[in-house]
Amino acid sequence: MKKEQVANCQFSVWYPLFKKHTIKSLILPLPQNVIDYLLDDGTLVVSGGTEHTQHSRNNNSDSEEEADVQWSDDETTTVVTAPEFPEFNLKVQEAINALGGRVFPKLNWSAPQDANWIALNSSLQCQSLSDIFLLFKSSDFITHDLTQPFRQCSDDSLDPIINYELVLRKWCELIPGGEFRCFVKENKLIGISQRDYTQHYQHISKQETSISFSIQQFFWEHIQHKFLNEDFVFDVYRDSTGHVWLIDFNPFGEVTDSLLFTWEELTSETSLTSSHTEECTALQDGPAFQYTTSDVTVQPSPCLSYRIPRDFLDLSTGEDAYKLIDFLKLKKGQQEEEESSEDEAEPPVPSV
C-alpha cells in the first residue's frame, strides 16, 4: 500500500468521478481551529449547538475559549465551555438543510463508526454540528485520519499534503443486509464480502448468484479502469430492486477491514476464485463471494472493543435510576466498612 494510493481514496478525490452513482454529498473545508478542537484530548465538551452558542456568547463574551468560573459562598465551581465556531457552524447547518436535514458525517477517509454507541439510538445520523462533534471527538477512526493516515504505507516518501474536509452525506436508511465490500487487485474484482458479518441474512444465500452478478456488472460498467488505483477496495449497496449504488472507496491494505476474508488470502498469488469453504462460495469465472451462512457462523462486531460498559453509560447519564441507587448504596456501604476498620485499628487511649 503506497501513500499515493491512500491519498487517491480520499472522498473529495473520487466523488467527482462517480457522483452520479453514489449518494448526494457536500464537502466543506475543515478550518485549522476545528481540527485543533477535534484533537484536543481534554474534557469532552461538545461545541456547535445553537442554544449553547448563544449562552456562551452572553456569559463569556470576553473570551469564547476560556472557562467560566462561578463563585458561591462555600466553593468555587469551574464550568468548562467549548470553543465556538459560528461561521463554520452556519456553513454546516446550511449544508445539512440542503441535504434534507439529516446527514451521515465523515472525514477524508473514515466515518466515526466506532463511536455510534455514544450517539442517540446508536446512530450516526446527525442534524447539527454538535451531533457531528460528539461523534468525531469520541472516534479513534477520526483521530487516525487526522494524525496518521499513512502509518501503514510501505514507501518512505514524504507524506502528501492533506487538506482535511468534512463530508456530509444525505442520510439514507440502508438495510445492513444489502451492503457489500469488494476487493480489486490489478483492476480485477477478486472478492466480495458481506459487509455486516455480525448477522445472518437468509436472502444473501438465496440470491447469491444474482447479487454477485449485479455487483460484477456494476464494476465492469462504472468502476473498472476508472478509479485512480489498480488495487483498491470499494463498498456498494444493492437495493431491493437489484440496483447497485457506490458507497465508498478504501485502500487495498490492512488499514481496511478485510471482513470475512484475510489479507493473506487477498494478497496471495493464488486466485480466490479457486477456493471453496463453508462460508465462501466461488462462482465460476467470478470473484469469491463470502458471507455468513448461518447463525452459528455469526461473528462479533469489531467496533465492540471501542465501547464502554452499558452500566457505566447508564450511571453517567442517569438513564437508569435503579442502577444509580444501587451504586450509591454500594458506595455508602464501602464507606461505612472503611470507617469501621479505621475505628478498630486505632490503639486504645492509655489511662492516666
Score class of each variant (00 low, 15 high):
K2Q: 15
K3N: 15
A7D: 14
C9V: 13
V13Y: 11
Y15N: 12
F18N: 08
F18E: 08
K19R: 15
T22I: 10
P29S: 09
I35W: 06
Y37Q: 03
L39T: 04
L39Y: 02
D40R: 01
E51T: 05
E51G: 04
T53V: 02
T53D: 04
Q54T: 07
H55P: 01
N60D: 00
S63V: 03
S63E: 07
E66R: 00
E66V: 01
Q70H: 05
D74P: 01
E75C: 05
T77L: 00
T77F: 01
T81S: 00
P83F: 00
F88K: 05
N89Y: 03
L90P: 03
K91P: 04
E94S: 13
A98T: 11
F104A: 05
S110M: 10
A115N: 04
S122C: 12
S123R: 06
Q127D: 10
I132F: 06
S138D: 08
I142V: 15
T143F: 10
H144Q: 09
L146C: 14
R151Y: 14
D155E: 13
D156H: 15
D159S: 15
I161P: 06
E165Y: 07
L174T: 02
G178T: 01
F180A: 03
K185I: 03
E186K: 10
E186R: 09
N187Q: 11
I190C: 07
S193I: 00
T198G: 10
Y201D: 02
Q202T: 11
Q202C: 09
Q207E: 13
S210H: 08
F213V: 08
F213G: 02
I215E: 02
Q216M: 13
F218P: 02
W220R: 14
I223L: 09
K226R: 12
K226A: 03
F227D: 02
F227Q: 07
D235Y: 04
R238Y: 00
V244D: 03
N250F: 06
P251F: 05
P251R: 06
F252D: 06
G253K: 09
E254F: 09
V255F: 05
T262I: 08
E264L: 09
E269C: 08
L272C: 08
T273N: 13
S274M: 08
T277R: 07
E278K: 13
E278G: 12
C280W: 02
A282P: 06
Q284N: 10
P287K: 05
F289Y: 11
R307E: 14
I308S: 11
L313E: 10
E319D: 11
D320W: 07
K323G: 13
F327P: 02
F327Y: 15
L328Y: 11
S340G: 10
S341W: 10
E342M: 10
A345D: 15
